[in-house]
């Protein structure tokens, strides 16, 4: 049996098994749909995440806010569960559906990861739009979470949309990290994409703030430098329109191990 049994939704996030408890029936159906790509079979001793409560007369925007908070809670628990095991980046990622070659696109929150994943994801494997967890052998523990899509009318509020609602699907093979870029959406409309290699010292300083639990690894900077070296280093990609990143993504997803 998978998915929702009573008020418990069993999910896998970054390779961690979690149980989302959703008491409110209004939230339950929405959560089940939003988290469909992460659903898995029940696992004993899974970490329990309790969904936020909502008022009986809650407006739709309060429900949306609760779902958004639930996503943050699940993310936090998944990160905590894998701390010290995975090198985790604040990044979106897509992979080739056949080879599993994946690109991690590192960027701070609210600077375009989800838009890039939505734009370039159809036909590819959706790995995450928020957190990418890389194992020592460079395989990636997926986190096919709902995509957090900002509302045009109320930018402070995001809707949690199931990947399939946006034409995305989970990887069919185990992804592995083939390349890593740092996204900077700082060019004017119409400008050509600029790709800049980043030397390892700057890369460490730029990437470290976008990692989680890096300090739990022995010699954390050396750990991160080794990982970067194994994927050909870091490149900074400056752009305006997400669609313009297609050649960058295609290039990395075409790599072989």
């Amino acid at each position: 049996m998978t998915g929702l049994a009573d008020d418990r939704l069993h999910v896998e996030a970054l390779g961690a098994s979690l149980v989302i408890e959703v008491e409110d029936p209004r939230l339950r159906a929405l959560a089940q749909r939003a988290w469909s790509a992460c659903q898995t079979s029940p696992v004993e001793n899974a970490v329990v995440v309790r969904a936020p409560s909502v008022r009986a007369d809650a407006e739709p925007r309060e429900i949306a806010a609760a779902l958004q908070e639930l996503t943050q809670l699940v993310t936090r628990e998944a990160i905590t569960a894998r701390a010290g095991q995975l090198t985790m980046f604040h990044a979106g990622a897509l992979c080739d559906r056949s080879s599993g070659a994946a690109i991690a696109m590192v960027a701070p929150g609210g600077t375009g990861k989800t838009t890039v994943v939505r734009t370039l994801g159809p036909g590819r494997g959706y790995v995450s739009d928020e957190t990418v967890g890389v194992a020592a052998d460079l395989t990636i523990a997926t986190y096919c979470k709902p995509l957090s899509v900002r509302r045009p009318d109320t930018p402070e509020l995001k809707d949690e949309l199931a990947p399939e609602e946006l034409g995305l699907s989970a990887p069919t093979v185990r992804p592995w990290l083939a390349g890593m870029v740092l996204l900077r959406r700082d060019l004017p409309r119409g400008a050509d994409v600029v790709i800049e290699p980043v030397d390892v010292l700057d890369a460490l300083a730029l990437l470290a703030p976008e990692t989680s639990s890096l300090s739990l690894f022995e010699r954390p900077l050396h750990h991160l430098a080794d990982l970067l070296d194994s994927v050909g280093g870091l490149r900074r990609v400056r752009y305006h329109d997400a669609a313009d990143l297609e050649p960058v993504v295609s290039d990395v997803l075409g790599r072989t191990r």
């Binding site: 993310t75 985790m88 604040h90 701070p108 929150g109 609210g110 989800t114 976008e210 639990s213």
Partner: peptide, 14 residues
């Protein structure tokens, strides 16, 4: 010296 306790960043943009 740091004990290696959790230093995870708060998830953003989730």
């Amino acid at each position: 010296a740091p004990s290696g306790a959790d230093d995870r960043a708060s998830p953003q943009g989730a």
